[in-house]
Amino acid sequence: MAATGERIFVQAIRRYCASHGIALDVRSGGWLLAMSGHGERHFAFGYDIGLNSAIAHRLANDKSAAAEVLTLEGVPCIPHRLFLNPSMGAHVAGPDWQQAMLMLLAQNPQGVVVKPNEGTSGRAVFKVTNRNELDRAVTEVFSSSLGLVIAPYVEIEDEVRVILLDDKPMTVYRKERPQVVGDGLRTLRELASEAGHDRQLRELTAQEVNAVVPNGEHRILNWRHNLDAGARPVLMEDGEVRAICAQLAVEAAAAIGITFASIDVVRVDDAWRVLEVNSGVMMEALAKLHPELVQATYDAALDRVFGGS
């Protein structure tokens, strides 16, 4: 958020409306925006600017459904298995959901990731390697969500976000996780503290954080690539990798039928796959580094909303 407490998304829409003679009515603390101009009224809600169909929006925001659709269309992706909250009744959740979860854990000895079926920013996302961790993660997610998904834990070598508008990549950037470089003298805790990354050590063991990092050796501090978890957006230059990521994102968008979206693709074992599709396009972290690019992206989307090219 900006110093005013207003989201970058709202600020960008304010600027667009001011420069295009469009009246803007901000409601619900900035989560509902009514834009009126040129004889039209359009709404933005949350981070959704209103370009996507209802079914595309719902598919994109449902991790399990999105993965199923991508698989049906032959788009490589990370599978996400859906489990519904047992509080809704056995006829909804099914009688064997716990056994099915344990089976998934047994099939993935490297671990699994448990997270809400809907939601962004990496909140309530857990890496699980044993039954006790699974029970804690499931209890935590089900305490606030009607559904969760379980995905195999994979070693993600790179994660790239592609923001698409009408199959055109508007912005492509890597999510660079916080890391330190060892000097052979200081512990991981000391190096992270000096770099301002103390928060990133919470999920590491005492043995890991108190060990001296060998000289020149890199240590990544967080297994998550989420920007809210400390990752930094780094724009990608034109080249083969950028083109591969953009093309995969275009294929994913076409499969779901979505017009304006941010799509996360990951490199696992040197192969690129889709991780998630997001109907709401959030660029709060990117705006701190590249405000002009973020404004231009929202401007182009709003041009489409108001019938421009």
Rank of each mutant, 00 (worst) to 15 (best):
K115W: 01
E203K: 14
M283C: 14
H57Q: 08
K115G: 08
Y16T: 03
A253E: 05
D135H: 04
S19Y: 08
A296V: 06
V209W: 06
N130L: 03
L84I: 03
V213F: 09
V274Q: 05
D96N: 06
G39L: 04
L204P: 03
E203V: 02
H38C: 09
R304S: 01
H42D: 06
A3Q: 15
T71E: 13
L293F: 02
V114N: 00
L84C: 06
E133K: 09
R161H: 10
L24F: 08
G308K: 15
H290G: 02
H57V: 05
V162H: 10
Q107Y: 07
V125G: 00
A106I: 00
L201Y: 12
A301W: 06
D183L: 00
G74V: 01
R273H: 11
V268A: 05
A100C: 01
F45P: 00
P169C: 12
Q247V: 03
G257I: 04
M88G: 06
V250D: 12
D299S: 14
L105R: 01
I220D: 08
A287Y: 14
V114F: 00
F45C: 13
N222P: 00
S309G: 04
L293M: 15
L191E: 06
C17V: 03
H20W: 06
L24M: 13
R136L: 13
T139W: 07
G230E: 14
H20N: 15
N226I: 05
I55M: 12
A285I: 08
V268R: 10
H91F: 07
E176I: 09
V141R: 07
Q295M: 04
P86G: 03
L32C: 03
A56P: 03
C245V: 14
E40T: 06
R131G: 01
A65G: 02
V113I: 10
D198K: 12
R189F: 13
A300I: 08
M103L: 13
R186F: 07
A60P: 03
I244P: 00
A229F: 01
V10G: 11
R267S: 05
A249P: 04
G111Y: 00
G307M: 01
V294T: 10
H218M: 15
A90N: 11
A271M: 14
A93D: 06
